[in-house]
Amino acid sequence: MNARIAHIAFNTFREAVRDRVLYNPIAFALLISAAAIFIGQISIEIERLVVINLGLTAVSLFGVVITIFIGIGLVSKEIERRTLYTVLSRPVRRW
């Protein structure tokens, strides 16, 4: 059964990666990290600190955003598009 969960997880991951909408938050995260360098330059003495802080903020913030957005879409999309039917009609337990 665990193998099946792994297969489903891999498929979900593959879908998410190929669905290019998700590249937007990643691009944003990169943008903010890059901005950190400039903002760091105008700060006095604490350049390193600003870069680290903004970089880490971008990672955690957009990590949460991506998780939430994929999470919201995941089940509802499967139900809406009826892709769930072909999965649930196979030997997969629901819980």
């Binding site: 498929n11 593959r14 879908e15 190929r18 669905d19 598009r81 009826r82 892709t83 072909t86 009609s89």
Partner: peptide, 10 residues
């Protein structure tokens, strides 16, 4: 299923 629809990106 009726009018099957699958994962678009596969």
């Amino acid at each position: 299923p009726e009018q099957p629809y699958f994962y678009d990106y596969l």
